[in-house]
């Protein structure tokens, strides 16, 4: 038996909106730790890792570890039917072939339940070791989204370079080139407007903008994004999910031949 009650149901809506175009089907894993997901896109270039810790739920009952295969587009369709202020409860029976999403309005005057068919998915889990990064950039998520969108109108790839000067996002295409440099800026009124660059050593990597733009669909989840870079390792683009967890996107770099 599984029963997870999330008062801030809009978080789950936002999570699904941010992953449904990247991954078609995925197994959601439920354990005492929390509600999690790890899935790759069909070309095995990008990976999403989600964790919503059990403490973040108002009620969290998970009698035994459960893996539920879901079509993320269908799950997103169902969660779209929840109001932004609704409380969302996820329910499933051990060994069952359905999951139920229950939506309660804040005043309890409307209660809806949507039952979705589960599916069997052969999931390939990758072991992601803890890594030391050469550079970690924390910046406003809206700014990062704007940069990715702007550069993708010029080119297909972005070179992200971190030096003492700051972080540089560069692209080139048929019509020309573009460079955007963001410097560390901690003298801001609001902490979410800060740009913080922690550099162990300079690093420069190239990534497909199509994926970066897809990751920025998580922007409504968090005011800040963290970009962790290391030579010849996938970049990690992380958005915190309120106080309860994170959504991390890994993207393999373009490799020089």
């Amino acid at each position: 038996m599984l029963e997870l009650r999330l008062v801030q149901g809009s978080l789950l809506k936002k999570v699904l909106e941010s992953v449904k175009d990247l991954v078609n089907d995925a197994n959601f894993d439920c354990s005492a730790t929390g509600f999690s997901l790890q899935a790759m896109d069909s070309s095995h270039v990008a990976l999403v890792a989600l964790l919503l810790r059990s403490e973040g739920f108002e009620h969290y009952r998970c009698d035994r570890n459960l893996s539920m295969g879901m079509n993320l587009n269908n799950m997103a369709k169902m969660l779209k039917c929840a109001g932004n202020d609704d409380i969302v409860t996820i329910k499933a029976d051990d060994g069952g072939d359905t999951v139920t999403f229950m939506f309660e309005s804040p005043t309890q005057d409307k209660i809806a339940d949507f039952e979705m068919k589960l599916m069997d998915i052969d999931s390939e889990h990758l072991g992601i070791p803890e890594a030391e990064f050469q550079a970690i950039v924390r910046m406003p998520s809206a700014e990062f989204a704007r940069i990715c969108k702007d550069l993708s109108s010029i080119g297909d790839t972005v070179v992200i370079s971190v030096t003492k000067e700051g972080v540089k996002f560069s692209t080139r295409g048929d019509i020309g080139t573009a460079n955007i440099v963001c410097r560390q800026n901690t003298t801001v009124d609001k902490p979410e407007d800060a740009t913080v660059i922690e550099m162990q050593e300079p690093v420069s990597l190239t990534f497909a903008l199509r994926y970066m733009n897809s990751f920025t669909k998580a922007t409504p989840l968090s005011n800040q994004v963290t970009i962790s870079l290391s030579s010849e390792l996938p970049v990690v683009v992380e958005y915190k999910v309120a106080e309860m967890g994170y959504i991390r996107f890994y993207l393999a770099p373009k490799l020089e031949e």
């Binding site: 095995h44 270039v45 990008a46 990758l126 393999a252 490799l255 031949e257």
Partner: peptide, 14 residues
């Protein structure tokens, strides 16, 4: 010239 890396080149299946 560059090629798109795959995740399996960096992380091992478990």
């Amino acid at each position: 010239k560059s090629t798109q890396g795959r995740l399996e080149s960096f992380f091992k299946p478990v």
